[in-house]
């Protein structure tokens, strides 16, 4: 073989062959992940508007973000509000839904398909449907309320209700998490429930002491994914607010503000700094979650 002819030692020959085989992925990783990562770090230290050459600013973009009183407090509040509420509520709703769909009910497959369906609906469709459903004047939900003689609710046009409404939509679209929970629930050994029954455990006890611990690794996984998704929340609020982050900046989340600063205000350097700050925050949250998991996550195969 050619590589043998080059006189390479087997160790390096294998390394080279391995690299050649993974080169399509490796090239993609370097070009589309490593390079943007490094360049965003570089631009975060510069004033860069895409149109003019970057000008070195040092840490100014980072300092500006932390000292900006006009937008940073609003954006951080909106994002934390959304993350802190939507992540646990989303996981809880997915878990409960999976629990319900794991019972012996008629038409179970149909229900599973129905509840999974939102996960495969494109975000633009989801946004348009909910926009019209929840519209205060023309929405079907408010139409029904009006029909019942109740007053209408400005779900998406009132700044106090817009974030809870988005969280509600988020809870509705939990098909993926639900599916993972469903698979996990089906994997919980029946023998544990049978033993618990023999010991006189009721339904709640079984759920609390068997189902939850056995599913806890997956709960952790879904929670982490929900936190990350919450911090990066963009598509739905962007589409529902028409790209404004309104009403009254109530849905201007971190990613929306980042995007507006980058592409509408031409502050690519500042937006890069924001991206790095977000990255650090997400890593911190993930580490905290992992650290806390020792107390509440049960790994059946873990060493004692």
């Amino acid at each position: 073989m050619t590589l043998q002819r080059w006189g390479l030692r087997p160790k390096y020959r294998n390394l080279l062959l391995g690299l050649i085989f993974i080169s399509p992925w490796l090239i993609g990783f370097i070009v589309f992940t490593i390079y943007p990562l490094i360049s965003s770090l570089y631009y975060s230290l510069h004033r860069y508007d895409l149109l003019r050459p970057p000008v070195f600013l040092g840490l100014d973009n980072y300092i500006t973000f932390f000292t900006d009183k006009s937008h940073t407090p609003v954006v951080v509040y909106n994002t934390l509000y959304y993350v802190v509420l939507s992540a646990p509520l989303g996981v809880v709703s997915a878990f409960l839904l999976a629990g319900l769909l794991n019972t012996q009910i008629k038409g179970r497959s149909v229900f599973r398909a129905i509840f999974f369906f939102p996960a495969i609906v494109p975000a633009i469709v989801t946004a348009q449907i909910w926009r019209f459903l929840l519209n205060v004047q023309y929405g079907a939900v408010n139409g029904a309320l009006q029909g019942l003689g109740l007053s209408t609710i400005p779900f998406l046009s009132n700044p106090d209700l817009s974030k809870p409404s988005l969280i509600l939509i988020h809870m509705w679209a939990q098909g993926n998490a639900m599916l993972i929970f469903l698979a996990t629930l089906q994997d919980v050994p029946r023998s544990l429930y049978e033993a618990a029954t023999v010991d006189g455990a009721n339904g709640w006890h079984k759920f609390r002491y068997i189902t939850i611990p056995m599913c806890s690794p997956v709960i952790l996984f879904n929670l982490i994914m929900a936190f990350i998704g919450g911090f990066q929340n963009f598509t739905l609020p962007w589409l529902i607010s028409g790209g404004t982050g309104g009403p009254n900046q109530s849905t201007e989340f971190y990613s929306i503000h980042l995007y507006r600063r980058a592409f509408q205000n031409l502050h690519m350097g500042y937006a890069s700094a924001m991206a790095w700050i977000l990255f650090v925050v997400i890593v911190a949250f993930t580490v905290i979650l992992f650290r806390s998991s020792g107390r509440w996550v049960y790994y059946g195969g873990a060493a004692e």
């Binding site: 926009r131 019209f132 519209n135 205060v136 004047q137 023309y138 400005p154 998406l156 046009s157 009132n158 529902i240 028409g242 309104g246 009403p247 009254n248």
Partner: peptide
């Protein structure tokens, strides 16, 4: 304001 925001979203 909520009314106008509602109309504007449509």
């Amino acid at each position: 304001p909520d009314n106008v925001a509602g109309i504007r979203s449509v």
